[in-house]
Design a protein around this nucleic acid. Structure first.
Lengths: 197, 197
DNA sequence: GCATATCTGGACTAAGCAGTCAAGAATCAA
DNA sequence: TTGATTCTTGACTGCTTAGTCCAGATATGC
């Protein structure tokens, strides 16, 4: 290892703080000062460690995905009943969305914010990929449910998967704009009911 | 009438241009220069005629609602079959969302943008009211459908209305992030299918 | 202790922003 | 024509922003 003065802060913790700020305020509305204040580090330390604002945002999105989205995806692929996994998924979304302070989903918030200006920014591409992998996971679980006889054979996996992802995104959006736990539960129950057809 | 030099531009057309800019870029990302350029008027004319940036945004939201959202609400309340009106509603949303350049819905975009910072800005309150009136309209149409025997009596109007509004918001969000016509159609068909239960 | 390498803090730069000001132009009433 | 009123144009102000520079601090390897 090369010598030199060591970092005075924990990189992972600092990144986590950055995630929180971006999550609450969005990308543009967050200033470098907001970030340094919450992360508890100096301006130069931020630039040394994370590059510019956009790089930091990229890392924040990635960290958020690992912490929040990946576990959701894992629910779908849990061993046991695919239909139960789908139900569990939506109940968890309702739960997750109504805890915390209506921050919504960092990826959704960011997608909306960037879609207007940088339609093909690397950040936006990453987010789109993540949502696509959600749809793929959903489709696979649906297929497994059909094979297991838990879901009707008449179901078109692609159609249902797209529909469920749509509902999912709707819940994230409602959460951001201040929906109550009851509201989110109702939507989740609607999604679950739509499996029985 | 008081004398004075008359406006050199059409107020309504200028406002329409402002709607387009805010719709494409969002509130923060839109500068006064962006606005004056697209509206074809000078800086001072903008301030004289519309007040500050936030007032202009308020007027833009209102104009957007009158032009885009109100007709959607009217579909639900059209005379004839309530169930058909609900179907028509979702097909129209899919159509509306995939025309244009993935601008999504101005009210959704704005809600996401403001929810992070000014949680109780007047603009946000207006938008929330608009969505609430959509849910009320939805609920009423559902009740009419039940009374007419088109929808099952076991349906809870509140639950279904909330669910459908959630799907609706999901479609708006997907549209903003670049969903294709096919994707939106699949979600719409899912919503329609969920009426038969 | 000394050389080397990295980190930190604060001042700084250049650009972009919303909003204002003042001087001139266009209209109407009399 | 003259005066009152409103619109237009362009320069301007004060502020915030992302990102840079540099001097000093703190570590390691020898």
């Amino acid at each position: 290892m090369v010598p030199g003065r060591p970092l005075e802060f924990n990189r992972t913790e600092a990144l986590q703080s950055a995630v929180e700020v971006f999550w609450e305020k969005g990308y543009q509305a967050t200033s470098i000062e907001d970030l340094t204040a919450r992360m508890g580090i100096g301006r130069q330390s931020l630039y040394n460690t994370f590059g510019d604002k956009e790089s930091l945002m990229s890392e924040a999105i990635e960290a958020y995905f690992q912490a929040a989205s990946a576990p959701m995806l894992a629910i779908l692929q849990a061993p046991g009943s695919p239909a139960k996994n789908l139900k569990m998924f939506f109940r968890r979304v309702a739960e997750h969305c109504s805890s915390g302070e209506h921050k919504g989903c960092l990826m959704v918030n960011t997608a909306v914010e960037f879609a207007g200006t940088d339609r093909d920014s690397p950040i936006l591409k990453t987010i789109r990929n993540r949502f696509q992998s959600l749809e793929r996971g959903m489709r696979q679980t649906i297929r497994q449910g059909i094979e297991a006889g838990e879901l009707s054979k008449r179901i078109d996996p692609l159609q249902l998967a797209t529909f469920l992802v749509g509902i999912f995104q709707g819940m994230l959006l409602m959460s951001k704009t201040g929906a109550s736990r009851e509201t989110l539960d109702r939507v989740a129950e609607g999604a679950i009911a739509s499996l029985k057809s």
